[in-house]
Amino acid sequence: MDLTPIWLTLKLACITTLILLAICLPLAWWLSKGRSFFKIIIEAIITMPLVLPPSVLGFYLLLAFSPQHGVGKWLHDAFDLQFVFSFQGLVLASVIYSMPFMMGPIKSALQQLPASLSQASYTLGKSERETFLRVLLPNIKPSLFTAMVLTFAHTLGEFGVVLMIGGNIPNVTRVASIAVYDSVENMDYSAANTYSLILFCITFVLVIGVFIFNKTQAKSPLE
């Protein structure tokens, strides 16, 4: 039994979660402060993967990062970077595809904090950055945790988008969800069952973890 797809999936989920955390914290903070037409456009772009078929997103990423032309060619020629059929490509696709799951809970939690918390901190002479790090961030911990777990769990289950940009290369881009599909295609139901069961258990434990962590919040982790 080859467990590489499971390790590859966990590695992809960890990296995606960390990258999205770094991107979404400042972005969610900026988006939570007031509204403008530009911010609405940005939010719509971030939310698109929620409603777009994964294969559509994967197809456009495949085109955009193809080493034969455009951005993909430039990245390949200038930095020797190839996103198509590589693990980096999976990371890029996962970051784009899972972004709404990290962004949503963080932004909504920041918007729900009373404006007077930031204002009180400003009147004490604290900068916006210090206020964010020492007042706002510590008070959205449950939502932060929820966002990280949802992102991680969602990345575990990605299929269409990773198949389109990564293909099915053993030890490189063959993640668990693709391994399940591949096993079924080859009538190897035992392997498909093992991969599926492992994914099911990991995801179930994660969701239970969120509910336990947030029990004092009396909220659904999807809120």
Binding site: L117, Y122, T123
Partner: peptide
Amino acid sequence: SPQKRMVGFVFQNYALF
């Protein structure tokens, strides 16, 4: 900016952290 004015402000809803 509020940071430069440094006034003591007691908010109606307390605004405690």
